[in-house]
Design a protein around this nucleic acid. Structure first.
Lengths: 148, 148
DNA sequence: CCCCTCCGTTTACAGTTGTACACACTAAAT
DNA sequence: ATTTAGTGTGTACAACTGTAAACGGAGGGG
């Protein structure tokens, strides 16, 4: 389990997420399999997918391993690290004061299992022990606060 | 209060977030003020900031109002809508099965106030009443599931 | 009345992203 | 040996992003 994300994950674009999710789910696979699976959802040409694969390798998010005559593609970072990293990156852009509200909105809109909820509740109870009364806005350079 | 985000908010880039946060905090302001405030954090040239402003207006995220001889800039969407929209957009890329884990990670890493925590707990208790036992992975076209 | 200063507009340019055609190479089939 | 089918590589190109210099118009100061 990764504790805290070190140096902010490589930016992953929406199209890249689609490829990555398949790679993570399958573990290792040939471009052909990837393409077939992906085309079941997106009508992208083989070429487009091959380009995306190439770029992901260049970005260092995938590695290749020569097998047979073609390549086996594997992810270099775990899905959780990618998810947590991206989520944290997004939250970095938000006003410190309003992160809680955003989280609340997510909790309300995302489908969660009983187990997820239990874990979240446990984490929250723990956090409540040391949580501050207020968090101030960090949108402006001087200490000026935003309302609400 | 916006209930659910309609048609997926205009994509906001990292640099744009910086401008927007200032605009949201100040409500209405002249480019000069914006530039001064922003330059206290980022060493961007006036020009760069003016370009970003213009692009935000073109994207429809800001509107202008001629005042005096210059423009007053205002945001066209609320900060919460932007935050919630972006967060939901990100979550759309994640495996349905692992959204809970990502949320958990956020809850652990984000600074929350006592009040935020209470609200989250309330929302979770409510949600627990109807939450499913499991959520399945939606990464692959066929029903194939990812492990963990 | 002229120049300067402010602010908005034009233009620029490299890098990234979405999308894809066409080509090269190699193993396999004929 | 020649063709073929399957993979990877090169190239392309428009839109968007990060960053910024330069220009043009209007009001203020001299």
């Amino acid at each position: 389990m990764s504790e805290s994300l070190q140096s902010s994950i490589q930016e992953i674009t929406p199209s890249e997420w689609e490829l990555m999710r398949i790679v993570w789910t399958k573990g290792k696979l040939y471009s052909r399999e990837l393409i077939d699976l992906l085309q079941a959802k997106r009508s992208w040409s083989d070429s487009t997918i091959k380009t995306l694969l190439r770029r992901l390798v260049k970005k260092g998010l995938l590695t290749t391993e020569k097998q047979d005559r073609r390549f086996l593609y594997t992810a270099t970072i775990s899905e959780s690290d990618a998810m947590n990293g991206s989520a944290e990156q997004l939250f970095d852009h938000l006003c410190a004061m309003k992160k809680g509200a955003t989280l609340l909105n997510l909790v309300e809109h995302v489908t969660l299992t009983q187990t997820d909820i239990e874990k979240l509740q446990a984490a929250l109870s723990e956090k409540a022990k040391t949580a501050p009364k207020e968090v101030s806005c960090d949108c402006l350079p001087n200490g000026e606060q935003c309302e609400s």
